[in-house]
Amino acid sequence: MEIMEIIKEAMVFPSKDIVKLAVYIALSVVSVLLGAFGIIYLAIGVASQSFWIIIGLIAFIAALILGFITTGYIVSIIRSGIEHEESAPQFMWKENLVTGIKFVVLNIVYFIIPAIVVLILGWATNLFGMASIMFTRMMYASMAAPANATVTIADVVPQSMIISFGNSLIIVGIVAFILFVIFGFLETMGQCRLAKTDSLGYAVNIPEAFRDIGRIGFGKVIGLTVLIFVIILVINCIISGLNAYIAGFSILSIIVTPYLSFFAARASGLLYSDIA
């Protein structure tokens, strides 16, 4: 399929089965609420050393389970695109839960490499050391200064260190951006490989994921991924902009965000179907 054909089909796809989209939305909302309550009650329980910590743990674990289920379901949406199924798949609670856990592991595997490289580069350029020194000096200077005084970074840190820190930050930032973009493309292929086979070992085969991009076409993969990103960004910006004029308009995100998740997953599956 051509890029625009994929976009058109994927954009319509979520509306073909409103019931399953509604179930996904409900599960996502409940998961977020349980997670928030879990964190609050955990904090209360730790502070007061009371039974609320148990309530918080239960709510937090329930939120994680629902999160894994919804994540696993998104993988099944990718599979529906690979297999060109007409409508959204059924919820398979146990399978979705297991797949969601695999998906999280997959993301850790793909992004731990660029994370380690960035950390090593930050250490090699002394970025973290300089940041620690600058933060400590600012903190002590702020504590020692009169209440109405304003302390700037230039007052407590030599200009040479500020320049060195800025240069290191630029270098690390550029490398981090490049690496995470590259591994983001690879991770997309990993998601599709997981959706196709349900095998974590198959999904985390990074060299084969790279070859999959070549088989589909680097231009097509990059073009579709960028277009999906732009569409999601524009829609979210429109919602944010309208919220500035219409109070509460951002509540639409509860519906729009899951819809866009279906859209992006379906598009990825259709893309991968070229070589499946």
Rank of each mutant, 00 (worst) to 15 (best):
1 M>P: 02
3 I>C: 08
5 E>I: 00
6 I>K: 07
9 E>T: 15
13 F>V: 07
18 I>W: 09
22 A>E: 11
23 V>A: 08
24 Y>A: 11
30 V>A: 12
30 V>W: 09
31 S>I: 13
33 L>I: 15
37 F>R: 09
44 I>W: 04
47 A>H: 01
51 F>Y: 12
52 W>H: 09
54 I>E: 01
59 A>L: 08
60 F>A: 10
63 A>T: 11
64 L>H: 13
76 S>Q: 15
78 I>V: 14
78 I>A: 04
79 R>W: 10
79 R>H: 11
82 I>A: 11
85 E>V: 07
90 Q>L: 14
93 W>S: 05
95 E>C: 00
97 L>C: 10
97 L>R: 13
98 V>H: 10
100 G>D: 03
101 I>A: 13
104 V>Q: 02
104 V>L: 11
105 V>L: 10
106 L>G: 00
106 L>C: 02
107 N>E: 04
109 V>Q: 09
110 Y>H: 11
111 F>C: 01
112 I>F: 14
113 I>Q: 08
122 G>T: 02
122 G>H: 04
133 I>M: 05
137 R>S: 03
138 M>H: 06
140 Y>F: 09
140 Y>P: 03
144 A>S: 12
147 A>I: 12
147 A>R: 09
152 T>E: 15
153 I>C: 00
156 V>M: 06
157 V>W: 03
160 S>D: 12
161 M>E: 13
162 I>W: 09
165 F>T: 05
166 G>Q: 11
169 L>A: 15
175 V>Y: 04
183 F>W: 04
186 L>V: 02
186 L>I: 14
193 R>Y: 03
196 K>P: 03
196 K>E: 08
199 S>G: 02
200 L>D: 02
200 L>R: 02
205 N>A: 09
206 I>A: 12
208 E>I: 11
211 R>L: 04
214 G>M: 01
216 I>T: 07
217 G>L: 08
217 G>Y: 04
221 V>S: 02
222 I>S: 12
224 L>T: 07
225 T>L: 02
234 V>F: 06
234 V>W: 04
236 N>W: 03
239 I>S: 04
241 G>R: 14
243 N>E: 03
250 S>T: 14
251 I>Q: 06
253 S>R: 05
256 V>H: 01
265 A>P: 13
271 L>Y: 06
276 A>R: 02
